[in-house]
């Protein structure tokens, strides 16, 4: 019940941003997808004049990729700021933490809401779009199953940025010293994961980022002075 109360509070605080991310991603994503479907309908009727071998052929839903990544990253960043930076700014940490709970419960509630938010706002719409695109015959090129998992990994990168921002928000060092290290590390992980490395390299990098940053979030909350 205590955990639920914390989750409800965190969820309510992040709800406007989740809704915004959902609207942006679903709205623009649906437009892009629909546009692609209409384009392909026209293409089916045309005589083929291009090269037959396409070594770097994009997936039919590749237009969604950058939108998915940016939305996940943006939502992760904003949620972390809302959950970890704003309480320091308006001095509500003490009010939140002075209650009959363990500190780790409060951390769990925040992380749970972050994962839930990314899943509901970005992950589930992505799943819907993929299922729509993967219907046989929707596009001339097949939509491969691995693209689905790549999309979810992008959602995971959004969580990486969330953790990096949380580490930076919780860090009590000056901004020109190590305060930005969490963000910088997360940015490095995201860059390397997107750097054309074949799978499972992005997966391994994401796992490393999760472990390194996740441990630090817990440890910083335990050692932080409020």
């Amino acid at each position: 019940m205590k955990f639920l109360a914390l989750v409800k509070k965190e969820f309510r605080e992040c709800l406007p941003w989740m809704c915004l991310a959902f609207i942006i991603f679903t709205g623009f994503g649906a437009l892009l997808l629909r546009g692609k479907v209409l384009y392909e309908e026209g293409r089916r009727k045309e005589i083929w004049r291009e090269e037959q071998v396409v070594p770097w052929c994009t997936s039919p839903i590749s237009d969604i990729g950058p939108l998915l990544l940016l939305t996940a990253l943006g939502l992760g960043l904003v949620m972390a700021i809302r959950q970890f930076y704003v309480p320091a700014f308006d001095k509500t940490w003490a009010f939140t933490l002075h209650r009959p709970i363990r500190l780790i419960t409060a951390v769990h509630a925040k992380l749970f809401v972050a994962i839930l938010g990314l899943t509901l706002s970005v992950g589930l719409p992505w799943t819907g779009m993929f299922l729509y695109a993967a219907i046989p015959g929707r596009f001339m090129d097949p939509v491969l199953p691995k693209v689905f998992w790549e999309g979810w990994l992008m959602v995971g990168l959004g969580f990486i940025l969330y953790l990096g921002t949380a580490v930076s928000s919780l860090c009590q060092a000056r901004w020109y010293t190590t305060k930005v290290c969490g963000l910088a590390f997360a940015a490095g992980i995201i860059f390397l994961a997107m750097a054309e490395s074949p799978f499972p390299a992005p997966l391994v990098l994401t796992a490393i980022g999760l472990v390194v940053l996740g441990i630090q979030v817990y440890a910083l909350m335990q050692s932080k002075e409020f």
């Binding site: 509070k9 605080e13 308006d90 001095k91 509500t92 003490a94 009010f95 002075h98």
Partner: peptide
């Protein structure tokens, strides 16, 4: 505990 400044969730 009543904090200085009475910070609450606005």
């Amino acid at each position: 505990y009543v904090c200085e400044g009475h910070p609450l969730y606005k």
